[in-house]
Design a protein around this nucleic acid. Structure first.
Lengths: 143, 143
DNA sequence: CTTACTGCAAAGTCTTTGCAATTAA
DNA sequence: TTAATTGCAAAGACTTTGCAGTAAG
């Protein structure tokens, strides 16, 4: 699971499990709550320490989702492929985008800059099809 | 300069000027210092308030540059075209990338997701050509 | 056995806010 | 004039850290 020379303890087991089972993006508060359900002794400070560790190992990414929800930071397990978070500024829905757009982007970036891209974070703000449609209709009604 | 119904005051003038004249990305601390050079009465709280205002008006963007420098946030004036920050994880150099890669990306995103993209934030971590080369040479010496 | 890891509480950052004084329009 | 804006200080949110006890390997 993670033999990078670090100890496998109950709190860490709980935290990793929470992250793996989370569908959405969790902040420290939510991670702590859920980890406590598995092991009530888990302390918030340990969550911070463990997240820092996992981040350092490149197993977890830290996001801020454009600061739309204040300054909370969110965490997610790092996956094989790059993906972007596309956020609707109206309804706050977060869409995850991966696939060829991201793969091409990475290749283009490397060619353009000469960098060896290690990872890539992209957050897009906009209007989702529903909300854009609603706005268009409202504007039409105005006229 | 900015008639969005807000008052033009000395502190605001100073802060905007600092942002406009900054080549690099500044955090609140640096903005405050530089604004104080223009108007010594400028208070940090005013800097926060003004940045929030400018951000709300879409004139300024807030970045965290991958949290490589702790949790400081950086600010820059919004420009016409999208651009990405490409950061070397070794030497910390920050390269700004704009142009056709970004333009294409935006178009691809809109087509793929159906979102009306309002803005786009991308931060890339990797090894710049120099550092990648150095690393490669070091590895070769090892062998 | 050793030393990493943990909970706790206290201390640090960074940011926001209430308020009376100030000032742009 | 008069409502927005400001400086200040205090409060708030989020995160880190020192320490002594605990437990993994």
């Amino acid at each position: 699971m993670r033999d990078a020379g670090i100890r496998v303890t109950a709190p860490r087991r709980a935290i990793v499990r929470v992250l793996e089972e989370a569908g959405d993006h969790l902040d420290v508060e939510e991670i702590t709550e859920r980890a406590r359900a598995l092991d009530p002794s888990v302390h918030r400070a340990t969550v911070y320490r463990t997240l820092g560790l996992l981040k350092g190992l490149g197993l977890v990414d830290e996001l801020d989702l454009l600061h739309l929800e204040g300054d909370r930071h969110f965490y997610e397990v790092r996956r094989e492929t790059e993906h972007a978070h596309v956020i609707c500024l109206t309804c706050r829905r977060v869409l995850e985008l991966s696939g060829h757009v991201m793969a091409e982007l990475r290749a283009d970036l490397e060619q353009e800059t000469g960098f060896a891209v290690k990872f890539l974070r992209m957050e897009v703000g906009g209007a989702c099809p529903d909300c854009a449609g609603r706005a268009r209709r409202a504007a039409a009604d105005q006229a």
